[in-house]
Write a protein that binds this DNA or RNA. Structure first.
Length: 435
DNA sequence: TCTGGGGTCCTAGGACCC
DNA sequence: TCTGGGGTCCTAGGACCC
């Protein structure tokens, strides 16, 4: 047998926060416990998180808000705009808690982490994971589910079992014997496997591969032509052969994107310039925080795809020198915008993507241009970032970004940033019992 | 009136080079 | 009829994830 195909002996745990955004809202507003709650996407567009009670009422992931309004009134569903500052801060607390339990933590997303527990014996796993779960609840108030298996893909499967089957109390260890594995994999529909999305599940089902057990036993030659190397890896992971290792160092980003829908359509170039300049300003701040510079900037604009007269366009501007300075970025973005903007359309969304990111300390000189490194410009950017960090976002901004910003996204039901803003600390209202 | 945002990886195909 | 071969780099588009 090929050495690389040896079954994994690792014990990988996937720790996943239950209904994360909802759980965060509940930490700061316990009255929401046991009630149907929905959190909306940016611009209050559609439902991105639902409590179990809301799921039971048939609120689908991604359902547009305007289609939900009737149900929301009918069942008194609580609705919140997404509060990413608060969710990000609570996420960091959960991840910090995990690092007390394993030296090897891969933060996979805002609400999930893979951790290595390979040093534990099979018998100790359940007890240890239960302790993790209890500690996270105690320190942060967030409920989690934990699935443990020899590969990441199987840990995802185990996590699903932990979450769906209450008898396991939120912790499930993937079994060792073949019949037990079959029992678990039989319950996982093919579209619920990590890495199988809409297109692949349609194809798999048309080939009579309907669940994880059937996929596990499909020969590689059948999968390869359609799903390529990704499919082969997935198949092997299901068979206990590790193809995806733990990524302990966060990889530096290859691209950074800032985009957004408008509260109402933009119909003039002037307003669009404001929007693009605003997004570009955020992107610049992101790049500087990541200590990266960009070599190219893509501008894109589009109208609603749900309406007639659809128009979308994009353009990529290559920068003569990699930069993360807002004025240079805005110049390039506006230049791009002017090339793709057409009058007579109602634009619904716009954004920019910075690509070809490189570490900001590597500065590739261009012999035709003077190099501006480490001069007043650099100090100016640092000062602006510091002011905005300490005195609030947009304390200092560029005039071209506009002042009114009537197009800015809606967030009508926003909770406070309880953990990161002194002015928004939770208020405890105490009243003395009257006799 | 109202349909998210920010990412990753992989592949195919074209341009270009020797 | 014939159209080198091998390699790299870049880009666009598809599929997926949370």
């Amino acid at each position: 047998m090929n050495l690389a195909l040896k079954p994994s002996t690792k014990k990988i745990a996937l720790v996943d926060c239950n209904n994360f955004y909802i759980s965060v809202e509940r930490v700061f507003n316990p009255a929401l416990v046991n009630k149907p709650v929905v959190v909306l996407s940016n611009n209050d567009g559609c439902a991105v998180a639902r409590s179990q009670e809301a799921k039971d009422l048939g609120i689908a992931m991604g359902a547009p808000y305007f289609k939900l309004k009737q149900k929301i009134t009918q069942y008194s569903i609580e609705v919140y705009s997404s509060n990413y500052v608060l969710y990000g801060d609570m996420s960091a607390r959960v991840m910090a808690t995990l690092s007390h339990f394993s030296p090897d933590v891969e933060v996979y997303s805002i609400d999930e982490a893979f951790i290595d527990l390979s040093w534990l014996s099979g018998d100790e796993l359940k007890k240890y994971a239960t302790a993790i779960r209890r500690t996270i609840m105690m320190w942060t108030g967030i409920p989690v589910s934990i699935g443990i298996a020899p590969t990441k893909t199987l840990a995802k499967v185990a996590n699903r079992v932990a979450k769906r089957q209450p008898q396991h109390h939120g912790v499930f260890v993937y079994p060792h014997t073949e019949p037990d594995k079959k029992t678990v994999l039989d319950t996982i529909a093919v579209e619920d496997i990590w890495g199988i999305g809409r297109q692949y599940s349609i194809w798999l089902r048309s080939n009579l591969i309907n669940d994880a057990f059937e996929l596990k036993n499909t020969p590689e030659w059948l999968i390869q032509p359609k799903m390529g190397i990704v499919g082969i890896r997935l198949l092997r992971e299901l068979n206990g052969i590790s193809c995806l290792s733990l990524e302990l160092q966060p990889k530096s980003k290859r691209a950074t994107c800032v985009s957004g829908s408008f509260s109402h359509p933009i119909k003039t170039l002037e307003q669009m310039k404001e929007a693009i300049a605003t997004h570009t300003t955020s992107a610049g701040a992101k790049l500087r925080k990541q200590k990266q510079s960009t070599t190219a900037i893509t501008v894109f604009i589009l109208t609603s795809k749900f309406k007639d007269n659809y128009y979308s366009n994009s353009i990529t501007i290559t920068l003569p020198i990699a930069t993360n300075r807002t004025p240079e970025l805005i110049n390039a973005a506006i230049r791009g915008l002017e090339l793709i903007y057409r009058d007579g359309y109602e634009y619904k969304k716009a954004g920019i993507i910075c690509q070809g990111l490189i570490p900001q300390n590597i500065r590739q000189g261009n012999v035709f241009l003077q190099d501006y490194s480490s001069d007043k410009q650099q100090r100016l950017m640092e000062t602006i970032d510091r002011l905005n960090a300490t005195m609030g976002r947009n304390t200092v901004f560029w005039g071209v970004s506009g002042i009114n910003k009537s197009w800015i996204a809606k967030r009508d039901n926003l909770t406070s940033r309880y953990t990161t803003s002194w002015s928004e600390l939770p208020i405890v209202k105490a009243s003395l019992p009257s006799d």
